[in-house]
Every structure is written in structure tokens, then in C-alpha cells.
Simulated assay, not measured.
Amino acid sequence: MKLVEDLRTHRLVAIVRGTDPRTTLASVITLVGEGVTLVEVSLTSKDALSVLAEARAVLGPHAPLGAGTVLTAGDARAAHRAGADFVVTPAVCEGISAARDLGLPVLAGAMTPSEVVEVLRLGADAVKLFPAASAGGAVHLRALRGPFPQVPFVPVGGVDAAVARSCLDAGAVAVGVGSPLLGDAADGGDMDALRLRARAFLRAVAPERADR
């Protein structure tokens, strides 16, 4: 997959993390059905690799499916075997270079300028600005875009609809959203409520039309 192009096009990465494999899988399928194209299953989820493999089987070979919280080379290899198309890390770690060696694009976590330089050196395709909301959101993003104007940034962490809009307006290529989007759906909660939140976030990240 062309990760950066997909991020620019779809502008939203859903982060699914759950304690119930059945409803974690159902959440992935529900999000894709509502039009959330980029979905990441965190490896901290219960039976995450099985969820990834089952989601791949249900969605087919062409749906972009990511593995999140990839830290080690073993994590990257396991995600690749389970059918992940891309990996997401929370920090500078060996999972970045290991995923690149496997041909998987990487959205790598960083917060400081030094970390941005390091994840790019290791081969990251885009930078996950994490944790975004608690560290200044759009203000911090604008500061980083000064020395790194060409870097594709994806703010993640505490991103609700308002923060998503402000970060996209500040130059983010996309945002990553976990609990504000998922709620308790992946833990056995209300799937209808998840559908409504998905539609609301898709509206929030949609590009504004020039004729409005």
C-alpha cells in the first residue's frame, strides 16, 4: 500500500483496542462498513493477531489493515504473518526497521524534533505525533512543521472531533483516533453507537469545500 497517499486521502485512522476478540473484530468490520478505510488493531488487544488474521479473511486482500503498538522485530514479523498492510509504533523502536525490512510501511511514534529525525532515519513513512492532545495539539504540530515542513504528521492520542479538525487545519495529513471513536464497542459495547460516532468523525475530517 501507499501509506502516505492513503493517509492524505482518507484523513482518519481508527485505532481499535479491545478486551473481547469477538467484539474487537466486529468493531473493525463495522468501521470499514461505515467508510473508515484505514483501521489499526493494537497488539495490546486480547488475541490481537487472531483478530488481524480474521479481519483480513473477512475484508479480503485489498482493505488497508494495520497493526498498532508494534515495538519489537518479533511484533513486526507477527503482524506481517497475520496479514497487516502497515504497522504503527508508539515510539522510536526496533519495530520500525524490522517492518521496513519486511516491506511494510510504518507510521512511527515521535514527539520531539530529535525523535522525528530518528524515526525518519529508521525508515518511517509518516510520523505519529503522540501523545497529541495532551502535548499541545495543533500548537505543537505547527511548531514541528516549521523545521519539518515536508514530513507527514498524524496526531494521535486524545483526539476528539474538535482536535481532529484543528490538527488537520494546522497541516496534519490525517489523525488517529482511538477511544473517542471506539468508545466501549471493542469491549462488548454498543455497535450502533459506534456507527454514529464513525459517521460523525468522517464528517469532522472531511475536507471543507471551497464553495461553502
Rank of each mutant, 00 (worst) to 15 (best):
R100A: 10
V106Q: 05
D184C: 00
G146F: 00
I96R: 08
G66R: 06
R197P: 00
L144E: 06
A162H: 14
A135Y: 14
V116C: 02
S114Q: 07
L182T: 12
A67Q: 05
G171Q: 05
V70Q: 13
M191D: 05
V156A: 10
R145A: 11
G146M: 05
A198N: 07
A193H: 01
V127T: 13
G95V: 10
P180A: 08
G136H: 06
S134F: 05
L194H: 08
P105Q: 08
A193D: 05
A98E: 08
F86V: 08
V151A: 09
A135P: 00
V159C: 01
G183P: 02
V117Q: 10
R197Y: 00
R100L: 13
L107I: 10
V88K: 03
V173A: 03
A67F: 12
A164T: 01
R77I: 14
A172V: 10
F86R: 04
G74H: 01
G95M: 10
G146E: 12
A164P: 01
R81H: 12
D85K: 06
D169M: 11
A135G: 06
S97I: 11
T69W: 04
L107W: 01
D169Q: 13
L71K: 09
L181D: 08
G68Y: 11
A79C: 04
R145E: 09
G136E: 09
G189P: 04
R121D: 13
L65H: 03
